[in-house]
Computed example of a mutant assay.
Amino acid sequence: MQAYQIVQRARQLDRISTMDVINGICSQFMELHGDRLMSDDKAMITGIGLVDNKPLTFIGIQKGSNTKENILRNFGSSGPAGYRKAIRQMKLAEKFNRPILTLINTAGAHAAPESEENGIGDAIAQSLITMSELTVPTLAIILGEGGSGGAIALALADSVWMMENSIYSVLSPEGFASILWKDSKLASQAADVMKLTAKDLLELKVIDKIIPEEFDSVLIEKDQLLKNLITAIKNEFKRLDATEAEERVTLKYERFRKF
Protein backbone atom coordinates (compact mmCIF):
# COMPACT_ATOMS: atom_id res chain seq x y z
CA MET A 1 0.00 0.00 0.00
CA GLN A 2 1.28 3.47 -0.88
CA ALA A 3 2.09 5.80 2.02
CA TYR A 4 -0.55 8.34 1.00
CA GLN A 5 -3.23 5.64 1.03
CA ILE A 6 -2.31 5.04 4.66
CA VAL A 7 -2.54 8.80 5.29
CA GLN A 8 -6.08 8.75 3.91
CA ARG A 9 -7.03 5.77 6.07
CA ALA A 10 -5.57 7.47 9.14
CA ARG A 11 -7.90 10.41 8.52
CA GLN A 12 -11.12 8.42 8.21
CA LEU A 13 -13.86 9.50 10.60
CA ASP A 14 -14.81 5.95 11.62
CA ARG A 15 -11.46 5.01 13.12
CA ILE A 16 -11.24 3.76 16.71
CA SER A 17 -11.37 6.85 18.92
CA THR A 18 -10.30 7.74 22.43
CA MET A 19 -13.87 7.28 23.70
CA ASP A 20 -14.17 3.91 21.93
CA VAL A 21 -11.15 2.68 23.88
CA ILE A 22 -12.36 4.17 27.16
CA ASN A 23 -15.86 2.71 26.80
CA GLY A 24 -14.48 -0.64 25.75
CA ILE A 25 -11.85 -1.10 28.45
CA CYS A 26 -13.40 0.60 31.49
CA SER A 27 -16.05 -0.77 33.85
CA GLN A 28 -16.41 2.82 35.15
CA PHE A 29 -15.06 6.13 33.89
CA MET A 30 -15.10 9.61 35.40
CA GLU A 31 -14.14 12.42 33.06
CA LEU A 32 -12.20 15.30 34.60
CA HIS A 33 -12.53 18.75 33.07
CA GLY A 34 -10.60 21.99 32.81
CA ASP A 35 -7.03 23.22 33.23
CA ARG A 36 -7.83 25.30 36.35
CA LEU A 37 -6.57 28.37 34.54
CA MET A 38 -8.37 29.02 31.28
CA SER A 39 -11.10 26.66 30.05
CA ASP A 40 -12.12 23.08 29.30
CA ASP A 41 -10.75 22.05 25.90
CA LYS A 42 -13.24 19.63 24.34
CA ALA A 43 -10.62 18.17 21.98
CA MET A 44 -8.75 16.70 24.96
CA ILE A 45 -10.48 14.07 27.08
CA THR A 46 -9.00 13.24 30.47
CA GLY A 47 -10.23 11.15 33.37
CA ILE A 48 -9.91 8.09 35.56
CA GLY A 49 -11.25 4.69 34.62
CA LEU A 50 -11.45 1.31 36.32
CA VAL A 51 -9.76 -1.43 34.32
CA ASP A 52 -10.05 -4.85 35.95
CA ASN A 53 -10.82 -2.99 39.19
CA LYS A 54 -7.61 -0.96 39.01
CA PRO A 55 -7.55 2.82 38.37
CA LEU A 56 -5.98 4.05 35.15
CA THR A 57 -5.58 7.64 34.00
CA PHE A 58 -6.72 8.33 30.44
CA ILE A 59 -5.55 11.29 28.36
CA GLY A 60 -6.69 11.36 24.76
CA ILE A 61 -7.43 13.58 21.81
CA GLN A 62 -10.93 13.05 20.43
CA LYS A 63 -12.07 13.83 16.89
CA GLY A 64 -15.71 13.83 15.91
CA SER A 65 -17.46 11.23 13.78
CA ASN A 66 -19.55 13.89 12.00
CA THR A 67 -19.46 17.63 11.35
CA LYS A 68 -21.31 18.61 14.54
CA GLU A 69 -19.00 16.53 16.74
CA ASN A 70 -15.92 17.77 14.89
CA ILE A 71 -16.90 21.37 15.54
CA LEU A 72 -17.37 20.54 19.25
CA ARG A 73 -13.98 18.77 19.35
CA ASN A 74 -12.27 21.40 17.17
CA PHE A 75 -11.48 18.62 14.67
CA GLY A 76 -9.13 17.01 17.19
CA SER A 77 -6.83 20.02 17.46
CA SER A 78 -6.26 20.88 21.09
CA GLY A 79 -5.18 24.29 22.33
CA PRO A 80 -3.08 25.32 25.34
CA ALA A 81 -5.93 24.64 27.78
CA GLY A 82 -6.09 21.06 26.54
CA TYR A 83 -2.40 20.37 27.09
CA ARG A 84 -2.49 22.04 30.49
CA LYS A 85 -5.46 19.83 31.35
CA ALA A 86 -3.38 16.81 30.29
CA ILE A 87 -0.46 17.97 32.45
CA ARG A 88 -2.78 18.34 35.42
CA GLN A 89 -3.90 14.74 35.04
CA MET A 90 -0.33 13.49 34.60
CA LYS A 91 0.67 15.10 37.88
CA LEU A 92 -2.38 13.68 39.67
CA ALA A 93 -1.59 10.21 38.29
CA GLU A 94 1.98 10.50 39.53
CA LYS A 95 0.78 11.63 42.97
CA PHE A 96 -1.63 8.71 43.35
CA ASN A 97 0.54 6.14 41.53
CA ARG A 98 -1.85 5.53 38.62
CA PRO A 99 -0.61 4.27 35.22
CA ILE A 100 -1.32 6.55 32.27
CA LEU A 101 -2.66 5.72 28.83
CA THR A 102 -2.46 8.44 26.19
CA LEU A 103 -4.46 8.11 22.96
CA ILE A 104 -3.52 10.28 20.01
CA ASN A 105 -5.39 11.29 16.87
CA THR A 106 -4.64 14.83 15.77
CA ALA A 107 -3.42 16.63 12.69
CA GLY A 108 -1.63 18.94 15.14
CA ALA A 109 -2.21 21.36 17.97
CA HIS A 110 -4.61 24.25 17.35
CA ALA A 111 -2.70 26.66 15.14
CA ALA A 112 -4.40 30.01 15.68
CA PRO A 113 -3.45 33.44 17.04
CA GLU A 114 -5.37 32.79 20.27
CA SER A 115 -3.35 29.62 20.85
CA GLU A 116 -0.11 31.57 20.50
CA GLU A 117 -1.44 34.32 22.74
CA ASN A 118 -2.25 31.78 25.46
CA GLY A 119 1.03 29.89 25.32
CA ILE A 120 0.57 26.79 23.16
CA GLY A 121 4.34 26.36 22.74
CA ASP A 122 4.94 26.47 26.47
CA ALA A 123 2.03 24.08 27.15
CA ILE A 124 3.43 21.50 24.73
CA ALA A 125 6.94 21.90 26.16
CA GLN A 126 5.66 21.51 29.73
CA SER A 127 3.74 18.39 28.69
CA LEU A 128 6.95 16.86 27.32
CA ILE A 129 8.86 17.77 30.48
CA THR A 130 6.15 16.33 32.70
CA MET A 131 5.96 13.06 30.75
CA SER A 132 9.74 12.71 30.85
CA GLU A 133 9.68 12.90 34.65
CA LEU A 134 6.83 10.45 35.28
CA THR A 135 7.72 7.32 37.22
CA VAL A 136 4.34 5.61 36.79
CA PRO A 137 3.89 3.24 33.80
CA THR A 138 2.96 5.09 30.61
CA LEU A 139 1.73 3.85 27.24
CA ALA A 140 1.04 6.06 24.20
CA ILE A 141 -0.96 4.86 21.20
CA ILE A 142 -1.38 6.71 17.92
CA LEU A 143 -4.86 5.77 16.72
CA GLY A 144 -5.01 7.80 13.49
CA GLU A 145 -3.05 10.96 12.79
CA GLY A 146 -0.03 11.78 14.90
CA GLY A 147 0.76 15.28 13.77
CA SER A 148 3.63 17.49 14.94
CA GLY A 149 4.06 18.77 18.50
CA GLY A 150 0.39 18.25 19.22
CA ALA A 151 1.00 14.50 19.02
CA ILE A 152 4.47 14.18 20.54
CA ALA A 153 3.31 16.18 23.58
CA LEU A 154 1.40 13.05 24.65
CA ALA A 155 3.83 10.45 23.27
CA LEU A 156 6.89 10.66 25.50
CA ALA A 157 5.96 7.35 27.14
CA ASP A 158 7.61 4.14 28.31
CA SER A 159 6.09 2.42 25.31
CA VAL A 160 4.81 3.95 22.05
CA TRP A 161 2.49 2.08 19.67
CA MET A 162 0.81 2.82 16.37
CA MET A 163 -2.21 1.35 14.69
CA GLU A 164 -1.22 -0.24 11.36
CA ASN A 165 -3.00 2.44 9.30
CA SER A 166 -1.93 5.44 11.37
CA ILE A 167 0.74 8.07 10.69
CA TYR A 168 3.23 9.97 12.84
CA SER A 169 5.22 12.91 11.49
CA VAL A 170 6.45 16.43 12.07
CA LEU A 171 3.85 17.82 9.64
CA SER A 172 1.31 16.71 7.07
CA PRO A 173 2.33 15.54 3.58
CA GLU A 174 0.46 18.56 2.19
CA GLY A 175 2.49 20.87 4.41
CA PHE A 176 5.72 19.11 3.47
CA ALA A 177 4.95 19.43 -0.25
CA SER A 178 3.96 23.09 0.12
CA ILE A 179 7.21 23.98 1.91
CA LEU A 180 9.67 21.97 -0.18
CA TRP A 181 8.02 21.95 -3.59
CA LYS A 182 5.59 24.88 -3.33
CA ASP A 183 2.73 22.59 -4.36
CA SER A 184 0.41 20.82 -1.90
CA LYS A 185 -0.86 18.66 -4.76
CA LEU A 186 2.40 16.70 -4.49
CA ALA A 187 1.33 15.34 -1.09
CA SER A 188 1.37 11.76 -2.35
CA GLN A 189 5.04 12.02 -3.34
CA ALA A 190 5.82 13.74 -0.05
CA ALA A 191 4.25 10.91 1.93
CA ASP A 192 6.54 8.42 0.18
CA VAL A 193 9.69 10.16 1.42
CA MET A 194 8.55 11.26 4.89
CA LYS A 195 8.78 7.85 6.62
CA LEU A 196 5.51 8.50 8.44
CA THR A 197 3.90 5.04 8.39
CA ALA A 198 3.90 2.60 11.29
CA LYS A 199 6.13 0.17 9.37
CA ASP A 200 8.68 2.90 8.65
CA LEU A 201 8.74 4.12 12.23
CA LEU A 202 9.05 0.63 13.70
CA GLU A 203 12.09 0.05 11.49
CA LEU A 204 13.54 3.37 12.68
CA LYS A 205 12.80 2.33 16.32
CA VAL A 206 10.71 5.45 16.90
CA ILE A 207 7.86 3.19 18.03
CA ASP A 208 7.78 -0.18 19.78
CA LYS A 209 4.75 -1.97 18.36
CA ILE A 210 2.22 -2.00 15.54
CA ILE A 211 -1.39 -3.04 16.17
CA PRO A 212 -2.47 -4.95 13.01
CA GLU A 213 -5.61 -3.71 11.29
CA GLU A 214 -5.64 -6.37 8.58
CA PHE A 215 -5.54 -10.16 8.43
CA ASP A 216 -4.72 -11.85 5.12
CA SER A 217 -5.12 -8.46 3.39
CA VAL A 218 -8.66 -8.08 4.77
CA LEU A 219 -9.52 -5.27 7.19
CA ILE A 220 -10.38 -6.52 10.69
CA GLU A 221 -13.88 -5.52 11.82
CA LYS A 222 -13.83 -2.52 14.16
CA ASP A 223 -15.33 -4.41 17.14
CA GLN A 224 -12.74 -7.18 16.86
CA LEU A 225 -9.95 -4.66 16.33
CA LEU A 226 -10.99 -2.86 19.51
CA LYS A 227 -11.00 -6.14 21.45
CA ASN A 228 -7.51 -6.95 20.16
CA LEU A 229 -6.27 -3.49 21.14
CA ILE A 230 -7.76 -3.69 24.64
CA THR A 231 -6.16 -7.10 25.26
CA ALA A 232 -2.80 -5.74 24.13
CA ILE A 233 -3.15 -2.66 26.39
CA LYS A 234 -3.91 -4.77 29.46
CA ASN A 235 -0.96 -7.07 28.77
CA GLU A 236 1.38 -4.14 28.27
CA PHE A 237 0.47 -2.51 31.57
CA LYS A 238 1.06 -5.84 33.33
CA ARG A 239 4.52 -5.91 31.76
CA LEU A 240 5.26 -2.31 32.71
CA ASP A 241 3.95 -2.83 36.26
CA ALA A 242 6.41 -5.70 36.67
CA THR A 243 9.33 -3.38 35.86
CA GLU A 244 10.90 -1.25 38.59
CA ALA A 245 10.11 2.45 38.29
CA GLU A 246 13.80 3.42 38.25
CA GLU A 247 14.45 1.05 35.36
CA ARG A 248 11.46 2.39 33.41
CA VAL A 249 12.64 5.98 33.82
CA THR A 250 16.20 5.08 32.77
CA LEU A 251 15.03 3.18 29.70
CA LYS A 252 12.71 6.04 28.72
CA TYR A 253 15.53 8.55 29.08
CA GLU A 254 17.94 6.46 27.02
CA ARG A 255 15.34 5.80 24.36
CA PHE A 256 14.42 9.44 23.69
CA ARG A 257 18.01 10.69 23.99
CA LYS A 258 18.79 8.65 20.86
CA PHE A 259 16.68 10.98 18.77
Results as ranks from 00 to 15, higher is better:
residue 20 D to G: 01
residue 128 L to F: 03
residue 220 I to N: 10
residue 252 K to V: 00
residue 206 V to R: 11
residue 197 T to S: 06
residue 255 R to P: 00
residue 87 I to H: 01
residue 45 I to T: 10
residue 183 D to C: 12
residue 5 Q to L: 12
residue 68 K to T: 11
residue 48 I to F: 05
residue 179 I to R: 14
residue 67 T to D: 13
residue 107 A to Y: 12
residue 98 R to M: 14
residue 33 H to K: 14
residue 36 R to T: 11
residue 68 K to R: 13
residue 254 E to D: 12
residue 255 R to M: 04
residue 172 S to R: 05
residue 2 Q to G: 09
residue 25 I to P: 01
residue 34 G to W: 00
residue 157 A to G: 09
residue 142 I to A: 07
residue 58 F to N: 04
residue 2 Q to Y: 12
residue 95 K to N: 08
residue 195 K to C: 08
residue 32 L to I: 15
residue 223 D to P: 03
residue 94 E to F: 08
residue 203 E to S: 08
residue 92 L to T: 07
residue 38 M to P: 00
residue 59 I to M: 04
residue 103 L to C: 06
residue 224 Q to S: 10
residue 216 D to E: 13
residue 166 S to Q: 10
residue 192 D to C: 07
residue 180 L to Q: 11
residue 145 E to I: 15
residue 131 M to V: 01
residue 182 K to I: 09
residue 98 R to W: 10
residue 109 A to S: 15
residue 93 A to C: 03
residue 36 R to F: 14
residue 144 G to Y: 07
residue 189 Q to E: 15
residue 29 F to I: 00
residue 245 A to H: 00
residue 207 I to V: 06
residue 9 R to T: 10
residue 7 V to E: 14
residue 150 G to D: 12
residue 10 A to I: 09
residue 171 L to V: 06
residue 218 V to N: 13
residue 128 L to V: 13
residue 219 L to R: 07
residue 118 N to S: 14
residue 64 G to D: 05
residue 104 I to F: 08
residue 104 I to W: 02
residue 87 I to M: 03
residue 76 G to S: 06
residue 236 E to D: 07
residue 37 L to E: 15
residue 247 E to Q: 15
residue 102 T to K: 02
residue 259 F to V: 06
residue 111 A to K: 09
residue 21 V to L: 05
residue 202 L to M: 01
residue 46 T to H: 03
residue 227 K to E: 12
residue 175 G to M: 12
residue 246 E to M: 11
residue 187 A to T: 09
residue 6 I to R: 08
residue 252 K to I: 02
residue 207 I to Q: 03
residue 101 L to D: 03
residue 165 N to K: 14
residue 248 R to A: 04
residue 224 Q to E: 11
residue 135 T to G: 13
residue 257 R to W: 08
residue 199 K to D: 09
residue 68 K to Q: 14
residue 181 W to Y: 15
residue 222 K to Y: 01
residue 2 Q to N: 15
residue 31 E to V: 03
residue 250 T to V: 09
residue 248 R to L: 12
residue 67 T to K: 10
residue 101 L to Q: 05
residue 159 S to H: 13
residue 82 G to V: 05
residue 217 S to T: 10
residue 138 T to M: 03
residue 77 S to N: 11
residue 30 M to A: 10
residue 62 Q to W: 09
residue 46 T to C: 14
residue 47 G to C: 04
residue 118 N to L: 13
residue 211 I to P: 02
residue 258 K to T: 07
residue 49 G to M: 03
residue 13 L to M: 03
